[in-house]
């Protein structure tokens, strides 16, 4: 057993064990010394809280929306960047750039300079065309956040799909061409199946990260209005650090772990298979 393994094991088991333990306690930081065993009360409370249902829906919409945009757009961009054109390598740099922008910066830039209902660039564009500017974050908070997050993950999907695309055997493409397959047939029968694996990997990995989107919500809407843009992660954060309800937040944390594990099982199988190859 190497130190790395032991450290990780401690790092994982101790806090996780504590979360599990807290989740069965009535434990609020504002009422120290009042801790008592409550069984599954916290779970019942958390799961029946209407905010939970809303947060779960938002989480799924957020993950699904971002996946749709980033994988669809990523596929398009990868195919585009695989074509020879002038300044291709520069465009490639432009396209991958958003991935390296820290979440708080991208959230603020989008919130203020692009989506602001009065001074934002989108508002100006809308007015130029004689339209009523939209207060994006107030009227469509979740959709706005989906755009902001998708902008950051689009490069990731692009980059991975492009890498996979470039590993496609050119002779296979040529053989298909000799066999009389046109551009679209080649795309459907050769290219997409070749990318299937990479697409799966992108979906799984993005899902893992997207389940935990936090900074973008904190900085733009703080989960509001109401709970309109609160996801599970953010809900637990408010429970823990704003309402100081350790027990409730812990129960939520365990639920989040279970949700993430469902995805993780698929991902790990997939990567494990690759390890044998």
């Amino acid at each position: 057993m190497s130190p790395a393994v032991i450290l990780l094991l401690v790092w994982m088991l101790v806090p996780l064990g504590m979360t599990l333990y807290f989740s069965f306690l009535r434990y609020n930081l504002l009422m120290p010394g009042m801790e008592e065993w409550t069984g599954f009360f916290n779970y019942r409370y958390f799961l029946t809280d209407p905010a939970f249902g809303e947060a779960l829906t938002n989480t799924l919409l957020l993950v699904g929306g971002v996946l749709l945009i980033s994988v669809g757009g990523g596929l398009f961009l990868a195919l585009l960047l695989d074509q020879p054109f002038f300044g291709q390598s520069i465009v490639r740099l432009l396209v991958v750039a958003p991935f390296f922008v820290m979440p708080t910066v991208s959230a603020l830039v989008w919130k203020n300079m692009l989506m602001h209902p009065v001074n934002g660039l989108f508002a100006w564009i809308a007015r130029t065309f004689g339209l009523q500017p939209i207060d994006w974050l107030a009227s469509a908070p979740l959709l706005s956040i989906i755009f902001i997050v998708a902008w950051g993950w689009l490069p990731f999907a692009t980059l991975i799909l492009l890498t996979a695309l470039q590993s496609l055997d050119e002779e296979q493409r040529e053989a298909a061409e000799m066999d009389g397959a046109g551009v679209f047939s080649r795309l459907i029968y050769i290219v997409i199946p070749h990318l299937a694996r990479a697409i799966t990997v992108v979906i799984l990995i993005e899902t893992i990260f997207l389940l935990s989107v936090f900074a973008e919500i904190l900085v733009t809407t703080s989960g509001g209005p109401g709970n309109a843009s609160t996801n599970i992660t953010y809900l637990i954060y408010t429970q823990a650090l704003l309402q100081f309800d350790v027990g409730g937040a812990s129960a939520g944390g365990i639920i989040a772990v279970i949700l993430a594990n469902i995805v993780a099982i698929f991902l790990i199988r997939m990567i494990g298979k690759n390890l044998e190859a």
């Binding site: 393994v5 990780l8 806090p15 504590m18 389940l211 954060y237 823990a240 944390g253 989040a256 993430a260």
Partner: peptide, 15 residues
Amino acid sequence: MLSTKMLPPVGVLVP
């Protein structure tokens, strides 16, 4: 080790 990466941070935020 990979699976620990899948642990959502919010699961251990409180402790």
